[in-house]
Nucleic acid binder design. Structure first.
Lengths: 205, 205
DNA sequence: TGTACATCAGTGAACGCGCGTTCACTGATGTAC
DNA sequence: TGTACATCAGTGAACGCGCGTTCACTGATGTAC
């Protein structure tokens, strides 16, 4: 049977990714060790380097799958026909929920800086862009006359604002807030920004 | 002459801190090495451990001085008698300017996580609080009826939002924005939030 | 289908090195008289 | 003020170890006939 090799290879890759994912989720990216991963995956230490060029590449693949999971979480059809403001609110709450539930995987998205010798590949950088698109879409409805370029920047700003509020609470430099309270802060922030956008549209008209 | 020893000791501490500060500012916290610091400071490697318990403690002292510099930048008397909204705008622009000008020192404030064996001391955690106070003060003027506890939380949210927008641009995961454009985004965000607060006050009244 | 050879994925002991921290030593500072 | 001794800040070579990566080997998979 042809492809037995490729089959095993894919299986090894999958086991390594799953092991790395679980290690990161449990102990955080900073405590990720090649030896732990390969042990969990049931292969020798060197096996990692037959499946991936190095540990950094494996982490990028884990982050890639985390981004896909986040995307799935944020594009649930539930909010399809709500108002743009409510869709933005849903996005923010979804982002918060995802960050809380997968704290370490979510942190790894922002904490992984591979060395200059093997920088993050473009295909992975591009994977972040869906976040901007998914935000830009309700924004377009709120302010249809805004040029798409400005809208893209505004989407980034909105993401940055929500991400910042969530980070500050979950990274633990400052004292933590009860989750419901944090959710309310995020919600009010988004509502305020959305209302601001709408007022700006009216002012322009 | 008494105190010659203490004098030298203080001098060594100061030289080490200055050397560490410059290294972090130039190469970033992640590239900080005990050997580089002591060489720049003109002492032996072991000298670091007579002045500080370990490298992490030295970094905390550098971060402490960075926070003091930030505080000085944010409490300039220039905006004393402006409107609360304008004072918030000034704070945000000052924060952005500081982050841009001292990017690596500013990053170090958020990137330094000492090991569990010697966690960040309380006195240093407390040093972050001035940020909240300095934001809470204009907020109090915007919404005098808001309970101080909620105000503290709201200050944190506002800080998180501005910090997030600034971070996203300066940490370079996403494509960079021209500084003026970034400044405008931050400004509009603050104006929007301040206006939202004011409208909320009017609604309550 | 079976046998002989070729390939190459996977193995795991060994490498290498970066780097924080230690510690036996010494020479400058402080103390006693 | 000067001398003898005590202290201890500062020295820097050596330690130690964590950990990513390599590489000579081997056994499973693939190919040829």
């Amino acid at each position: 049977m042809a492809g037995r090799r490729e089959e095993k290879r894919e299986d090894l890759k999958a086991r390594l990714m799953e092991a790395a994912r679980e290690r990161i989720a449990r102990d955080g990216l900073g405590n990720l060790r090649a030896r732990d991963i390969t042990q969990d995956a049931g292969c020798a230490l060197g096996g990692l380097y037959t499946a991936f060029t190095d540990l950094a590449e494996l982490v990028i693949h884990v982050n890639s799958s985390t981004l896909k999971a986040l995307e799935a979480r944020l594009t649930l059809p539930e909010a399809r026909d709500k108002s743009p403001t409510d869709r933005l609110r849903n996005l923010a709450q979804g982002y918060l929920a995802f960050a809380v539930e997968h704290r370490n995987l979510w942190k790894a998205l922002f904490d992984h800086f591979p060395p200059d010798t093997s920088p993050t590949p473009q295909w992975h950088l591009d994977e972040h862009l869906f976040l901007m698109d998914v935000i830009a879409e309700p924004l377009a409805e709120l302010q249809p006359d805004m040029p798409p370029e400005d809208r893209a920047i505004r989407a980034r700003t909105l993401f940055g604002a929500v991400h910042g509020v969530v980070s500050i609470s979950l990274e633990g430099r400052f004292v933590g807030l009860p989750l419901e309270r944090l959710a309310r802060e995020v919600d009010e922030l988004v509502v305020t920004i959305a209302a601001g956008a709408e007022r700006r549209r009216e002012a322009d008209a």
